[in-house]
Nucleic acid binder design. Structure first.
Lengths: 195, 195
DNA sequence: GCAAAAGTGTTCGTATTACACCCATGT
DNA sequence: ACATGGGTGTAATACGAACACTTTTGC
């Protein structure tokens, strides 16, 4: 029996104001790594074929490499997470929703990394549709940070980062005042100037 | 020919006020990973046998896993860095000093991670002897951050973190006023309370 | 007219920066 | 006596936290 190296991908999305992950038939999406394929390409293949999503629709980041992962299906697992907006997830067949907290130490580690990342990069874009209102953005931050935020302070902070463009459009949802619609200046991972 | 997984260790230390790394015969210390040995154990072995240091004398952290590393000696390299105080490095035979900046993108990534870590943990302890004076500590911070710091502000901040104990001893070096000698409260990685 | 979410400023406390001089020692 | 690094305080500013009411729409 030989060494097997696996790539695992933890898909993360926001559903109903919660940061959640999905498992497929009780397992984290994964595949054996084959020589002459980069780790990044394998990760993309997993997202494409197992998760059933377009890797380009989300944000991929390497999380950690562990030996002897619990599942015993690999000797080493190189773990990535994949952030994707709920809107891209079309047919959740065979998928089981899992709340994020205790599944795996790696998921809470991913959450930690995310908390830190959304403070100084624009990667939250990957959890939102192209156009959105500030309330939606705030709910994403709150889901990741696990606490509520003050609306005024949040808007002040976010707008000062100058990572959003005001589309000029307005959107009304239900019986409430219509909100300004925003869009990310860029949907590529970018470090936000803290000025 | 089969897949080969390598573990690499980037040793980092402070020498003459600079954060540097060492290579051995022009290569980063590494070895092939063998099944049934954890990554952590292999890393410790590399530090022990190739770097020639005691892993317990420094701080080890996983950095990143890459496929197709330049050296072509592995298909995949799982890279760690090892922080160690200059004082522990006894016989640098076969070792070549390398300044940190451009060697490898991973080294600048390690530097980034370090910059962020020393702000909220006590891991700098690993780059210092048991007892030291605040000037030495400041020089370590400056080497990692790559800029000079104001002495008064530095002392205020560091002492407010309450991660140091005053030994009561004084040390004079050369013709200057003797300095208070400090010691880390604990030499285990600890998250510093930001109070 | 009422429910629901959007939008908007000010105040306060804390943390960060900038900055200059005297001290204790070895030579 | 002088060179060397150690040690100390204050003022200005920037930043984050707390906080309440008005607006626009759908029903």
């Amino acid at each position: 029996m030989n060494q097997t190296i696996g790539i695992k991908v933890i898909p993360l999305t926001i559903l109903n104001g919660k940061l959640i992950t999905f498992v497929y038939n009780g397992r984290t999406p994964s595949r054996i790594w084959e020589k002459n394929v980069t780790l990044e390409a394998t990760t993309a293949q997993i997202i494409q074929t197992i998760v059933g999503l377009d890797p380009g629709d989300g944000y991929i980041e390497q999380l950690y490499t562990i030996s002897r992962p619990q599942e015993r299906d690999f000797d080493i697992a190189i773990v990535y997470y994949f952030l994707v907006a709920q809107a891209h997830i079309v047919s959740p067949e065979g998928w089981t929703e899992r709340v994020h907290a205790l599944d795996h130490p790696l998921i809470s580690y991913a959450t930690q990394r995310l908390r830190w990342k959304i403070e100084y990069t624009n990667v939250v874009y990957s959890l939102l549709p192209n156009e959105f209102v500030l309330g939606e953005l705030q709910r994403v931050y709150e889901a990741i940070l696990g606490r509520t935020l003050d609306k005024r302070n949040f808007r002040k902070k976010i707008l000062s980062l100058r990572m959003l463009d005001d589309t000029g459009k307005k959107r009304s949802q239900g019986r409430s005042r219509p909100a300004e619609v925003y869009r990310f200046k860029t949907r590529k991972p970018t470090i936000v100037e803290v000025l």
